[in-house]
Amino acid sequence: MDFQSCVKINREWDIVGARQIGREHAKKIGFGTVDQARIATAISELARNIYLYADTGKICFEIINEIDRKGLWILAVDNGPGIADISQVMEDGFSTSGGLGAGLPGVKRLMDQFDIISETGKGTEIRTVKWVRK
């Protein structure tokens, strides 16, 4: 898939940059204010995970235009250490960083589709989609 735009996550401030770009995309596609906030928050969580655990990575956006629906596809890729036990990080309250442990399960709830692929030592890729409500 050829993504329209990507934001590199290298510094802490890039988290804010990524979610601002995400919100702009969401607005353009026609998401309501609540869903805009959901999307921006999800991006914030994904970007922070990259920053905290992988140092560098990127967040990419793609607008989906299907016959009967529109949506925003967000891809978060990093070359970090990977996640050893995915089911563990998808548990509410699990955290290795002293956070609330709401990150990934929270993203899953904020978005409509959520896929995660991770290989120890190679990195993590999270693909997630939010559909515009009719």
Binding site: V34, A37, R38, E45, D92, G106, R109, L110
Partner: peptide
């Protein structure tokens, strides 16, 4: 919108 997002996040 923020309140709903927080609830979604748990």
């Amino acid at each position: 919108a923020v309140a709903m997002t927080l609830i979604d996040l748990g």
